[in-house]
Simulated scan of single mutants.
Amino acid sequence: MLNIYITRHGETQWNSENRLQGWKDSELTDNGKRNAVALGERLYQINFNTIYTSPIDRAVKTASLVCSDRNIPILFEDGLKEINLGDWEGKVKEEIEQTSKQEFFNFWNAPHLYNHEMHNGESFAALKSRVENVINRIIADNKEGNILIVTHGVTIRAILSYLMNIPTEKWWEGPFIEGTSLTLAQYDEGTFQVKMIGDTLHIKKTTSV
């Protein structure tokens, strides 16, 4: 059996400003770093085969903090990058709604109707396809044991959509995926079972400045 631990990167400066990041990036806040360290402490006794991370820096830094002083291979996977939000990246809700009010509404409330083309973004279908490919490749390389995936909020929704066969219209249902929250799935004999989604037991509730 393979245990698949999944986490989102720690809080970033743009998270704290409610800016969309996508493929763009911003620095981890002190709070984001603290919570990544706390997750590392929570997982310290687990023997991980490998840590797989999105190559975007906020995920890479989170993976490094979770890994701490342990000798665990950290591999970059382009398929774990966040959804590409095109022209929306770096902007807050009010800025996006000036040009894309309906599509911004659809993104969060009717994802099956979301049209990515007008702002040069990536579709949910394309995201899910690349996520399926990378998950299947990871499973092929890890028949048993434990692996950790460090990725992004929307990407975790894509992973859950694949593992649990969730249709696009129900993409956002379930617990909110906070920074460094922990999701756990198990793979055994061709079947996935999701045991935990977005657990925040280790997260320090402090305000970033």
Results as ranks from 00 to 15, higher is better:
P111A: 02
P111S: 03
P111Y: 14
H112L: 04
L113A: 01
Y114K: 08
Y114L: 10
Y114R: 12
N115D: 15
H116V: 00
H116E: 08
E117Q: 15
E117I: 12
E117M: 12
H119M: 11
H119G: 05
H119V: 09
N120M: 02
G121F: 12
F124N: 14
F124L: 10
A125K: 13
A125R: 12
L127F: 03
K128L: 03
S129D: 14
S129I: 02
V131L: 01
V134S: 02
V134L: 08
I135Q: 03
I135F: 08
I135M: 15
N136Y: 10
N136M: 13
R137S: 14
I138F: 01
I139D: 10
A140G: 06
D141P: 04
N142P: 13
N142L: 06
K143Q: 11
K143N: 12
K143W: 00
E144C: 10
E144G: 02
E144D: 13
G145S: 04
G145C: 03
N146Q: 00
N146G: 03
I147A: 05
L148K: 11
I149C: 14
I149V: 08
I149F: 09
I149R: 05
V150F: 15
V150R: 11
T151A: 12
H152A: 00
H152C: 03
H152N: 13
R157E: 10
A158M: 05
A158V: 01
I159W: 06
I159G: 00
I159K: 10
S161P: 09
L163N: 01
M164C: 13
M164Y: 04
N165A: 03
I166A: 11
I166Q: 10
I166T: 15
